[in-house]
Amino acid sequence: MPAIIETGDLRKVFRTVKRVPGPLGALRTLFSASYEDRVAVAGITMALEPGELVGYIGPNGAGKSTTIKMLTGILVPTSGTVRVAGLVPSERRQENARNIGVVFGQRSQLYWDLPLIESFELLRAIYGIPRDRYRRNLDEFVTILEMDEFLRTPVRQLSLGQRMRGDFAAALLHDPAIVYLDEPTIGLDVVAKDAITEFIARINSERGTTIILTTHDLAEVERLCRRIVLIDHGKLIYDGGVERIKSEYGRFRTLVVHFSEPVADPRLDGAELAGADGSSARFRFDRNRQRIDQLVRQASERYRVEDVNIEEPDLESIIRRIYVEGYEEAAR
């Protein structure tokens, strides 16, 4: 199947005025500004097939939002190519807008002063959605997202969870083939988060909508996405299955040992101490090199052990290590 989203060596460099410090600095920048280039996206090549749900992750400032902005067409790439549903977004902003839906967790696209339902009505007019299709979609979203009770409430009076549900419906009313979700569950409580996560999965599977999800909540990525694209410093550092990254970088397990009496300096051969607080200690080991039963035996021979358990690495701990140690380091 041909790709629905395609980028080729996509780059974005921002040029900012370099400020000179000091009392006369402001004056000097006013007259002889020198510029500073900041590379936000440093050559990203990727392709998404229709219907994929991809987790687009990376630490703060990695270039995720900049990439999304280029995909929506509101930011022109410095170099490289972008194609979204066959269009170059920045050249055909309005046409591209019809193919996409966007949800920003940090910023609502609903009309602040108006009741929620009126924002939906306005979007119907903006996208020229036929009335029967609008009715059908609205009814469906109101039911799934349980929006009945606050449909007539002005948006400014909604809770964050309610507002997010409204934003999701708003982004999907016109049946976009592609949806960009930029930290859509930020700040939500567990229940609201679950509802949204389930809704995302449902839209993807029932409507075949292609979704790019950027988030810091890796548990969410693990639940939703089969594929992740990991970027850092504007560069793509991993693109592939969630399972593969876990098996490649998840060779390390953690053995947690609880002692029945305080131990000053716990040690185990073949494992590395990853943290201790006197009554318990955490040992990290490579499961390809070290057998668990040997470690456990060793521990019980040396110390008075009350309990042990083994932590499997989740995506979160793997990604954290990649952020901290770098991609190459973490792979070793």
């Binding site: 902005k69 509101i74 807008a97 019809r98």
Partner: peptide, 13 residues
Amino acid sequence: EGTIATDLMKPIS
């Protein structure tokens, strides 16, 4: 407020 970005993502002038 930065909301101009979301407006630019709509098919409107």
